[in-house]
Design a protein around this nucleic acid. Sequence first.
DNA 1: CAAATATAAAAGTATTACTATCAATATTAT
DNA 2: ATAATATTGATAGTAATACTTTTATATTTG
Lengths: 224, 224
Amino acid sequence: MQSLRMGINEKLYLKDPESSDLGKKIIEQSILMINEMGFESFTFKKLGTAISSNESSIYRYFENKHKLLLYLASWYWGWLEYRMVFATYGIPDDERKLRKAIEILTQNVEEDNAFTHINEVILNKIVINEYSKSYLTKEVDKENKEGYFLVYKRMVNRLAEMIMAVDGDYPYPISLASTIFEGSLHQYFLQEHFPALTNCNESVTPLEYFTDLINRTLNVKPND
Amino acid sequence: MQSLRMGINEKLYLKDPESSDLGKKIIEQSILMINEMGFESFTFKKLGTAISSNESSIYRYFENKHKLLLYLASWYWGWLEYRMVFATYGIPDDERKLRKAIEILTQNVEEDNAFTHINEVILNKIVINEYSKSYLTKEVDKENKEGYFLVYKRMVNRLAEMIMAVDGDYPYPISLASTIFEGSLHQYFLQEHFPALTNCNESVTPLEYFTDLINRTLNVKPND
DNA sequence: CAAATATAAAAGTATTACTATCAATATTAT
DNA sequence: ATAATATTGATAGTAATACTTTTATATTTG
């Protein structure tokens, strides 16, 4: 589990929230609150009240709520990456491997692991609703240079490599990979708020849509 | 040109910005400023100063900057829809028609029409960087009910219908359409800020990527 | 037990996102 | 031309946000 934090840039926090009870409470409660009230309405003052702590104490862990969102996102992608690497490890067939990766990536996080202070089910919802806001900013280039998006970028690249392994001739592997990442979050969002803009529903999952898309798009090369 | 405003929900503004010089200046300058400083830093106070008017006067046109963003987005999608309908009108071949639609949709807005107060080139940049923020909110369901996203939804549906005309057996036409809409904006964003996450660059356009994707995904039915 | 460290409480600042009031100008109607 | 009306501008005010600073109080550690 420690390894999950691997890749979370140290500049995202002033003091490691995993290093104290207060830090863990900040993470735990911020996930719940951002999900409930949305990122815009969420403030450190409200968070402080909710965990019976003080605004100023939270500022000793995170510079601002934007950095906290980047931290939560990094944690999420690191967690997904771990699950993806674990689930695809040792699969010899490139096609099956890719399909497994997309399964991890696009499947709804349903079971609540709940063995840490981090609720992955709710964190997944936050990522669906708020992740774009973490990079659609004027500071994105500077923050990218600082390495705040490394975990996400590494994951998209992993998928692109799996795509290339299946069809080395496909000319847009990295665009397809980033489309699946962004598109998966988007289809879940549409399912909830704009059902008329997606074919995904209770019986059709984003996994099916994207698996089908991959099948149609890639030419499986014969085993050599 | 008047027809462009068709579909812009009247509840998005308190007073029609097209009905006065001040209103037009608000639209013109807000596009420039949101592009320059980003939506978060943009305020009505700054806008007022920039156009030598007053904060309170701007509030007589728009309730808040969120509604202004929704207005600009509606204008943009209405403009694109007009261009798309115009460009595809009368094309008898379904495949060519679909390809033309995707061309309009994904091609970079390069030429500055500049015959109104609205700079479409810059507005396109705003849509790439800020559009998601207009619906990734806690109020999205209420605002959707109010009809603030109608133009966009109509456009996605138009594309889905063209997809169905080409391949009536394809099971995910509306998901594919929404993927292309969102994905096109996303690929442009990546090209600028995360070039390692896209195959699009100076020589490869999102149009080529999505045209290829459509070609691979849809089975063209023989003319009957 | 003393020293260091972490947290809490309180107060303060600048800015945002408005609202309200009133005066100054245009515009329009008679 | 004048009165009535609508529009805009200027000013002030409020509550909340996004912090920073200072001081006091716990808690931990050596």
